[in-house]
């Protein structure tokens, strides 16, 4: 098995790492780099628990060959919390609105919400539902997740 070096930005830090040819991004993040916040629920891009941002765009890291991130920037759930422990308004809203149950889909949901609110802080409900439609949740019925995204947008706007 051949190995190659990849350089990319991970949560704002430069990373340089040797990886075997068959590595998928989710395994690079979780096993090699120790960022376990990104989850795998299906390994075929269906459940969305593995969503990370690639240059601010949500992608399924479980079906993304690691080499695709060469020279690009990756943001994971760990990258949303500031160094001093301050939470992203979306994380804050997920807590306050009761949008978390088992928590397995939560990182994926939050990353999709992050991408959406980055483009549009006042999305209508339909847009929110569309933006999170690639993450399956079996616990919440999505209602409080939609509400959390809505209220995070409002909060982000008021602190701007």
């Amino acid at each position: 098995m051949k190995e190659m070096e990849i350089q990319f930005q991970l949560n704002g830090c430069d990373v340089c790492v040797d990886v075997p040819s068959d590595t998928l991004l989710v395994d690079l993040l979780r096993d090699t780099l120790g960022l376990k916040g990104t989850k795998t629920g299906c390994r075929e891009g269906e459940c969305g628990a593995c969503t990370v941002l690639l240059d601010d765009i949500p992608v399924n890291s479980c079906i993304l060959p690691a080499f695709k991130v060469e020279g690009r920037s990756v943001t994971t759930i760990e990258g949303l919390t500031k160094d001093d422990g301050r939470l992203d308004p979306i994380q804050e809203a997920f807590i306050q609105e009761g949008a978390v149950q088992c928590g397995f889909c939560t990182p994926g949901m939050i990353m999709n919400a992050k991408a959406l609110l980055g483009k549009d802080p006042h999305p209508e409900e339909g847009k929110i539902r569309e933006a999170i439609s690639g993450v399956q949740c079996r616990c919440t019925g999505y209602q409080k997740i939609v509400q959390a995204v809505k209220s995070a947008g409002q909060k982000m706007d008021s602190t701007r």
Partner: peptide
Amino acid sequence: SIVRTDALSKVTGKLAFGADYSQ
């Protein structure tokens, strides 16, 4: 409606599920 005791660890991705344990 007290917030969940485990919500913080879940929104930050810090809570360890089985697959997150060291192998």
